[in-house]
Amino acid sequence: MGGQNNEAKRIVREILEDLKRGKKVVEVKERFKQVLSQIDEGDISIIEDALVKEGVPIEDIERLCEVHVAVSSEISGQKQMVGPGHPIFILLEEHKYVKDVADEIVRLLPSLSKKEEAEETVERLAELVEHLKEYNKHKVREENALFPVIEKHGVTQPPAVMWSEHDQQRALIKKIAALLEQRDVFSKNIEELASALRSISEMVMTHFYKEENILFPTALKLIDEGEWKQIKESMDDLGYCYFTPNQAIGAVEEVTVVKEVKGAEVTLETGTLTLEQLEAIFSHLPIDITFVDDKDSVRFFNQTRERIFPRTKAIIGRKVQKCHPRKSVEVVERILNDFRTGTRDSAKFWIHLGDKYVLIQYLAVRGKDNKYLGCLEVTQDIAPLRKIEGEKRLLD
């Protein structure tokens, strides 16, 4: 870290101390402006990461984000720097649509308290909430295509904060959807519904401001052209929102796959397979698998037709802890530590996911000498299996 960044880091640390002593954001804004006058906005993320590695709590970094948002002005020319087909351009175009949705939600809130307008307003709000549900695809693309590449450049805290906010949004949108379904007791939950709708609108706006003024400038500063092509390829693979403009998406990136020499074979204890056969077997399994090695790095996943949890090639080499929201990391660590010590060989969870009933199994993978080689995650929708009764002996 250069001299200017070191001086900026010193000032940032002082600002954090002031906040811990009870000073308000408005009282430290001028000091933060001093930091921004010395370095690029994208360098703030590098400083934040350095501070976390020195022991500064993540909660303090989140407070710093509040200061940054309060100080930052409009996006500094990002739209001029990237055009249609660039991942950042696509994300910004989607931001515009979701901002319009959030604005309309806020405008409709007063009508909820008017009896003659309430039912029609609720119908429209239900439609807008469907758009917010669709916006989850935007978040999934960021988490699986963009965040891993930013992390590979040593910047881990901004993506972690953004992912945490994504989960907060998901929980609130789920709550709102449930409230909107309770039409028979609507009069009883109108205040709760209005409060939740206002909260999600404000949450989305603040989140986008952080991304546009902190996360995206950092990404544009760190990521090279080749990596952007890989990110676009991953985004194309994951899919877009129904409101993503086609002209923003641009041309679909051709998938570039590097494989071993055609016809090469792998000899195993119970047989020999060509690489083509081996890959086809993995992709046709009725389960999703992901393998994490003994250093906790993601090494492989199979690409089935309808994966339950999305995966992109950007996660290869990523620490598995970074593939989970912050609230789940402690459980992941416990499982992996138990696998290493031999106190546990498996862990199972099952959850409802829309119309799916998902069984998630974590299995310790050990060699013949019982040496720990890594962890295998196996995921399967068991809803169809739970419906099986009796016997089936004849072919359809």
Rank of each mutant, 00 (worst) to 15 (best):
227 E>A: 01
227 E>Y: 01
228 W>A: 01
228 W>V: 00
229 K>A: 01
230 Q>S: 11
230 Q>P: 01
230 Q>H: 05
232 K>F: 00
232 K>A: 00
232 K>I: 00
233 E>L: 00
233 E>S: 06
233 E>A: 00
233 E>P: 01
234 S>E: 03
234 S>A: 13
235 M>G: 06
235 M>E: 13
235 M>Q: 05
236 D>Y: 02
237 D>C: 00
238 L>P: 01
238 L>N: 05
239 G>S: 11
240 Y>W: 11
241 C>T: 15
241 C>M: 15
242 Y>T: 13
246 N>V: 09
246 N>A: 15
247 Q>F: 14
247 Q>D: 14
248 A>S: 15
249 I>F: 05
249 I>R: 13
250 G>D: 02
251 A>P: 07
251 A>Y: 11
253 E>K: 01
254 E>I: 05
254 E>V: 07
255 V>S: 12
255 V>C: 02
255 V>M: 03
256 T>C: 06
257 V>L: 14
257 V>H: 04
257 V>R: 12
259 K>T: 15
259 K>W: 02
259 K>V: 13
260 E>T: 08
261 V>L: 12
262 K>V: 06
263 G>I: 02
263 G>E: 07
264 A>Y: 12
264 A>M: 08
265 E>I: 05
267 T>C: 10
267 T>A: 11
267 T>P: 02
268 L>F: 15
268 L>Y: 13
268 L>Q: 03
269 E>R: 10
270 T>K: 14
270 T>P: 00
271 G>I: 07
274 T>A: 03
274 T>W: 07
275 L>M: 14
277 Q>L: 08
279 E>I: 05
279 E>G: 13
279 E>T: 09
279 E>A: 09
279 E>F: 03
280 A>K: 13
280 A>E: 10
281 I>G: 04
282 F>I: 04
283 S>C: 05
284 H>W: 06
285 L>Q: 09
286 P>M: 09
286 P>L: 06
287 I>T: 13
287 I>A: 13
287 I>Q: 08
288 D>H: 04
290 T>G: 07
290 T>A: 13
290 T>H: 02
290 T>S: 15
291 F>N: 04
291 F>S: 10
291 F>G: 12
292 V>Y: 02
292 V>D: 04
293 D>T: 07
294 D>P: 00
294 D>Y: 10
294 D>S: 12
295 K>S: 14
295 K>F: 05
297 S>A: 09
297 S>F: 03
297 S>G: 04
299 R>S: 09
300 F>N: 04
301 F>Q: 11
301 F>I: 03
302 N>P: 11
302 N>G: 10
303 Q>N: 14
303 Q>D: 15
304 T>S: 14
304 T>Q: 07
305 R>Q: 14
305 R>I: 11
305 R>H: 12
305 R>C: 01
307 R>E: 11
307 R>C: 06
308 I>R: 00
308 I>E: 06
308 I>Y: 04
309 F>Y: 14
310 P>G: 10
310 P>N: 08
310 P>T: 04
311 R>C: 08
312 T>A: 10
312 T>Q: 03
313 K>C: 00
314 A>L: 03
314 A>F: 00
314 A>D: 04
315 I>P: 06
316 I>P: 05
317 G>H: 04
318 R>M: 11
319 K>Y: 08
320 V>W: 01
322 K>W: 09
322 K>D: 15
323 C>H: 12
323 C>S: 11
323 C>Q: 08
325 P>A: 04
325 P>W: 06
